[in-house]
Design a protein around this nucleic acid. Structure first.
Lengths: 195, 195
DNA sequence: AAGACTTGCAACATCGATGACGCATGTTCT
DNA sequence: AGAACATGCGTCATCGATGTTGCAAGTCTT
């Protein structure tokens, strides 16, 4: 559907519209997965027919949306260099980057059993990088050797998801949130001397 | 809609059907919030018309579903005596009880901005009890004095939600899960000596 | 067993969402 | 400026989901 080299350079006009629709779609659908095309169009500031012109069907929009959101998510992870940076640093960077991007992506990531080929691949890649990062964290001694890495990853996702529910408005707030997520992930919320 | 003393004792027949529909509704809608009445009816093993006979409209079903799930949730919390039991014990008990009940209630709790009067009241009550429990945990020294109680509660919810994604089949598995949730909540997943 | 109630089935009506056009009016690119 | 393209708007067709009703067969209560 979307070859690496775009076959036709879209007109500036069109690209803006497509972006607006995708962003609005993410926004609206995350709030209500059963939202209508009209609601999405309205949120995007375009006519309903325009949405249909750009995306043949509702399903096509959903797929494109998943691909788009996944792409942005992937970029956020990549930018943290999780493979090469010191694992503790990478963990923080990934957290901050993802929190910046994820302003209500709960839809495109969670509620989407997208069976599109490309999306699944990128998604799996992100998952693998995340898993790899946790392995490095364990090997670096940040996590104990007997850590259940699957549980660790899921807790991490859950914390990020929760933290992302309040959108940070400034960079300071973003860093504050990321710090909180990492701290909670590693040390929990109890008194460190307990148990 | 549902006075404390039920005006007419339902026939055994009817009650079974209603329960089946509610359970199926919870199950199906948590998997797909946009599921049709037919899918719910099918999952409940009844005809679609029967669903409409018991619940006037789709909205009525959703509302009843919210009320029902909230009720079960409330019972699970109550049974742990969060106000009187030692806070650490209560935390564990609440966790275990909720995990037992919540086999895919992600729908009725999260995706439901139900504005029904009774539901909202019970929901608020549960929230208050949870908040109160965290206050008691803090006062008991399990949590540090400067704990952000709102963040603590949200992390707790998120962890339970995550843990509930894999339904425990035995009591042992249930306790194992509850332990894991409480441990993670208090100590995180990092090495305890770190930082 | 008899009456009251419930369920399944089939048929029907309705309504909103989806999707497709054509046309007049902007926008963009060259 | 001029060609090419995108958009908004109104219109129309279609389809699936919702909700209703009548009737025959089954289930529960007493």
């Amino acid at each position: 559907m979307a070859p690496p080299a775009s076959p036709k350079p879209l007109r500036a006009d069109t690209e803006r519209t497509v972006r607006a629709i995708l962003e609005a779609g993410e926004q609206v659908l995350s709030a209500n997965p059963a939202a209508t095309m009209e609601q999405i169009a309205e949120a995007a500031g375009v006519a309903r027919t325009t949405v249909h012109r750009r995306f043949a069907s509702r399903e096509a929009l959903i797929t494109a949306l998943a691909a788009w959101a996944t792409q942005r998510f992937h970029e956020a992870v990549e930018a943290a260099r999780p493979q090469t940076a010191p694992p503790a640093v990478a963990l923080y960077q990934v957290t901050a980057n993802v929190l910046r991007v994820k302003t209500g992506w709960g839809f495109a990531m969670g509620a989407l059993p997208t069976d599109a080929p490309e999306v699944a691949r990128v998604h799996a890649d992100v998952l693998a990088q995340c898993a790899q990062l946790f392995v490095r964290l364990r090997d670096a001694g940040v996590l104990p050797p007997d850590t259940d890495l699957d549980w660790a990853r899921r807790v991490y996702y859950a914390l990020i998801h929760e933290a992302a529910s309040q959108a940070p408005d400034t960079d300071a707030a973003l860093d504050s949130l990321a710090t909180r997520v990492v701290e909670t992930l590693l040390h929990g919320i109890g008194t460190s001397t307990a148990n």
